[in-house]
Structures are given as structure tokens and as C-alpha cells.
Nucleic acid binder design. Structure first.
Lengths: 211, 211
DNA sequence: GTCTATAAATCGATAGAC
DNA sequence: GTCTATCGATTTATAGAC
């Protein structure tokens, strides 16, 4: 078991008024938009401030630095991202549990594309800030789930697949529709990709996983 | 048929000496390393120059601007990237043709991860410079191939799948091992992912596509 | 808390000597 | 062709008035 990463830990949660929390939320919302479009370095405080409807120094009154905004976003994101993975029920019906996971992940690509792209930007560029969480919480969760999946396979309730590569497949296939959205839409002549994606991925994983 | 995009067109290919070509190649090589790690905006001419073993002004003697280096790289990349797609033989055995395509793409993720990440960075951030090629050459190629695949399905030689979503699946599954490399290695405890990936993807597509 | 003004650092690109 | 020096613009962050 890897220790919970010391990095990306919530700092002192100083007591805040309702107004303060609202402003900070407003800044995170703007930061999510800008960081997900441009990556950490491509984003500017000017754009974030303007997106949030604040002046630059005012923004820095609520968060001490550009880094601080970015790390707060990554911290929040990590929870949202690992949630569906934890929702897989080891007592459920194997194929249906994984299909439900796929559908949840695909829905997240549709409903939270900025979050997906924020994550993609961070990882593609070497995960300089989120690496500890990948080697800690994520790896632990995957290890646990791999054991569950191996059990399902041994019981003949799931076709034999490598559990970790199966998870990579779920992640890549579903997140592709958010992260590579512009390419998908270019190829599809701007049609909504999601109805087709859901049908396709349902078929794909059913064929792969049915014993 | 969309016109060949006017953007990203090779400029006047001024006559060059052997030495000039070599230096320009050396700069592209350094640019590929830096741009793929940091994206367009994250890359600096300082880092590219140092990586290439040149001074900054000397680098700008061979390419007029940072943009020029980046666009030269994208132009080269596009060819390399569309090549395996064109290699699919409409007279071949359907399942084997697509499996061969998957293996070629996976091998590219192993052998040219920087190229894959350069592309990923560009697309995730909205493809500001390569969009015309996506709506032009790429879409045309996909349209052509979609017709071939539909023919195979109609002939009962391939399981019924949406041709375009099938291609998205090939792209996302294979490129994931290059683009999300750090995450894959974090989860796998730094083991080489590729032997496992090849086995897994072979199984996945065989199950999906066999009629 | 919010603003204007500005400091300090970085970065793309140019000037000009050799 | 290659270099040192530097310009000019951008950008993060701070100072200080209100």
C-alpha cells in the first residue's frame, strides 16, 4: 500500500465567509476553463481574471499564485476522477459492472470535458504536478480492482483479459471523446459523437468481456 | 472531397546545401523533443537551442520564428500519421487488415512517442494550427475507409460496427500508450507496457470484429 | 477587498560585430 | 554563419492608495 501522497494535499482550510468561498469558486471555474484550453503554461492570469470578472490583483488576493489555482483544480479533479472507479461493486454482475463504469466515464466526457482536458494536458506533459497521486492513490485503487477482476475471471464470470490493460482501454476510449473532441467532430462533420459512441463502446466491451 | 488545406503547406523549398539541411534537421529534432514535452506555448527557443546545441540567434537564422519550427514539425508529422491509414488494403482479409493497422499504430506509439505527444498536445488544445488538415485530408481519408469497411460488413466479412467509431477506438487505444505513458507506467510500476498492450489489443479487436 | 501602477523576470526576435 | 548584446512585449506578482 502506497502512502497517501503528501503532494496536492489540501492546505490549511482557513475559515471563510460565504462570500469568500463563492469568489474562490468563481475563480476555480474560470481557471478550469482557461487551464483546460491552454495547459498550465499557456494559461495567463489575465485571461483567468477576465473570465472570472475580476482584476488580476484581486484574483491574487484569493489565491496566492497561478500555481495555487492550478493545484486546487487538480486536487478537486482527482476526487471526481477516481470516484467512478470506486463505485465498481465487487459483488455485482461482472460484465454489467464494467459496462456501467464505461457509461459513467463516457458521460463524464460529455458533461465535464474541461476536467478531462485539464487532466490530459497535465499527463501528456509528464504529470509534473500530479505524479505522486498517480503512483499513490491511483495505483492502489487499480491494484485493488485488478484483484477483483482476476477473481471474476477465475470464476468464469468474465472473459480472460489483463485487468490493468482493460482499465487503460476504458480510460482511453471514453476520454478520447472529450480530449480529442475537435478531431472527432472534424471527422464526423460536427455531428454529436455521443449517441454513436455509447452504442459502439457498449458493443465493444460486451464482446470483449462476455465469457 | 475537401480541398487540400492551404494551411500547413510546404513553403518555397529554397535550394539548400547538405550542411544547411543537416542543421535544419537537427533543429527539428530538438524542437520535436521540446514541443512534445511542453506544447507550443510551453516550449522556449532557449530550450530548443540548447537541445540542438546552437545559440538562439543561430537557430533563428535557420528558421525565422518559433512558429516556423512548430509548423514544419506538424507538416512532417501529418504524413507519418496518415501513412498507416492509407496502408489498409481494401482487397485484404478484413479482420487481419485492421489488426495489422492496430499493430502498426501501437508500434508507432512505442517508436515515436514524441510525435504522438506533439499531436496530442495540439489536438487537446483545440488544434489551432492543424484543424484545416483534420477537416480536409483526415476526413477525406476516413470517409474513403468508412466506405470500404461498410462494404466488408455488408459482405459478412466483418462484425457490424460503426466505421468511424472503430477508427476512433484504434487511435485512442494505441496512442494512449504514448500520450499517457507516465500514467500507464505509474500504474504498472514502471514495467514495459507494450508486450501486454499488444496481446490485449489483439484480443480486443479480434473479439470485436470477428463476424 | 478592490483598484492602479509598477517591479521583476522571461521570452521571442533583432542589431551588429566578426 | 555564428556570436554577444539588447530591444520590446508579455506575464507573474507586489506596492500602496482608497
Amino acid at each position: 500500500m502506497t502512502e497517501k501522497s503528501a503532494f496536492l494535499q489540501e492546505g490549511d482550510t482557513a475559515p471563510q465567509t460565504r462570500i469568500q468561498r463563492a469568489k474562490r469558486q468563481q475563480i476555480l471555474e474560470a481557471g478550469l476553463t482557461v487551464f483546460s484550453e491552454a495547459g498550465f503554461r499557456g494559461a495567463t492570469l489575465d485571461r483567468i481574471a477576465s473570465e472570472a470578472g475580476l482584476s488580476k490583483p484581486n484574483l491574487l488576493y484569493y489565491y496566492p499564485s497561478k500555481e495555487a489555482i492550478y493545484e486546487a483544480l487538480l486536487r478537486d479533479l482527482l476526487e471526481t476522477w477516481l470516484d467512478p472507479l470506486q463505485a465498481i461493486d465487487s459483488n455485482g454482475e461482472p460484465v454489467e459492472e464494467i459496462l456501467a463504469y464505461v457509461r459513467r466515464k463516457l458521460q463524464m466526457s460529455r458533461d465535464f470535458p474541461r476536467e478531462s482536458r485539464l487532466f490530459a494536458n497535465e499527463i501528456v506533459q509528464g504529470a509534473p504536478r500530479i505524479m505522486p497521486a498517480l503512483e499513490g492513490e491511483l495505483r492502489d485503487l487499480v491494484d485493488t480492482l485488478a484483484t477483483v477482476i482476476k477473481g471474476w475471471i477465475a470464476a468464469g464470470r468474465l472473459a480472460p483479459v489483463d485487468p490493468r490493460h482493460l482499465l487503460f482501454s476504458v480510460w482511453s476510449l471514453t476520454q478520447h471523446y472529450a480530449d480529442f473532441d475537435v478531431q472527432v467532430r472534424a471527422v464526423l462533420n460536427d455531428d454529436d459523437p455521443f449517441p454513436g459512441a455509447e452504442t459502439h463502446l457498449d458493443l465493444l466491451f460486451r464482446r470483449l468481456l462476455t465469457p
